[in-house]
Design a protein around this nucleic acid. Structure first.
Length: 269
DNA sequence: CTGGACTTC
DNA sequence: GAAGTCCAG
């Protein structure tokens, strides 16, 4: 074999090795947790996890997420919100930590400092306040997105409270939420954390032997409009994000539910 | 509830 | 960096 061929072979082997590593390697802590069947622990039924367009799904104890390295935030965060999760605990808010489970290195919270944008939770702290451990787990940088304060404390907060109301009423909704991650978004910080122009929330209620869905697409801006004006079909969000939200449902049922954009089965009080 | 910023050690 | 205090939507 000539020297040139040897080099070519080495390069190919390295490329294949890197590909395999990128595809299958997981940090030991995460891998062990999965093998022990703790994933996701009690709260998120993996049966209803969305697909990932980034190939980096991470299961934390109380929610799961799919991290987008180019946008330095999650493309979705998913969890189940049960009636028993609702509580009025008033834990002290801890400091944010970089999510060590993100192998491509999650964004640092300093990107948000003095940026003018909130560290907006995707899985709200208020949805995980049934224990201090769960509450504090939401304070990781893979669970936040830059949000304008008037949006975060306004209509987005109203939507999160509505989800808690539905969790109370229907006992158990699956929640998937994130920003619409597109090309050429503006960003903040040295690591260039993308600022989404829209945020979405997709809900599935599987209680009472029936399955129903609802989805919201909110422009990233303050609004006093009623929430039902932002209801869209799950299909339309799948089209914009490339995410398949409920691939585990039987195909016919999935197609029927995801095409709907009415909200008559969801009480807006 | 959703958050930030400032002072002090 | 951590803790306390004060602030706004």
């Amino acid at each position: 074999m000539k020297r040139k061929q040897v080099y070519t072979l080495l390069v190919i082997l390295c490329a294949v090795g890197f590909y395999l590593f990128e595809t299958y390697y997981q940090p030991p802590a995460v891998k062990e947790a999965q093998e022990e069947g703790e994933v996701p622990k009690e709260t998120t039924n993996s049966f209803f996890l969305p697909s990932s367009t980034t190939g980096q799904v991470i299961h934390h104890n109380y929610f799961s997420l799919s991290y987008s390295e180019p946008h330095e935030q999650a493309e979705w965060v998913a969890y189940e919100l049960k009636k028993k999760h609702l509580s009025n605990n008033n834990f002290k808010r801890p400091y944010f930590e970089v999510d060590q489970a993100v192998r491509t290195k999650a964004a640092h919270w300093r990107n948000y400092k003095n940026s003018g944008y909130d560290r907006g939770h995707l899985c709200p702290a208020g949805d995980r306040s049934f224990s201090r451990e769960a509450f504090e787990e939401t304070f990781i940088t893979s669970n936040i997105s830059p949000q304008m304060h008037d949006f975060n404390s306004g209509i987005w907060n109203r939507l999160e409270q509505k989800v808690r109301y539905w969790a109370q009423r229907y006992d158990g909704v699956y929640v998937v939420t994130g920003g619409i991650l597109e090309d050429r978004l503006h960003s903040i910080g040295e690591e260039e954390v993308s600022i989404p122009k829209y945020f979405y929330k997709v809900l599935l209620d599987n209680s009472g032997g029936r399955t129903k869905m609802i989805a919201f697409l909110l422009p990233h801006a303050a609004s006093d409009r009623p929430l039902y004006e932002f209801v869209v079909s799950v299909d339309s969000i799948e089209k914009r994000t490339g995410i398949d939200f409920f691939p585990q449902l039987e195909d016919g049922k999935e197609a029927r539910l995801e095409a709907k954009s009415d909200y008559k089965e969801w009480s807006f009080q």
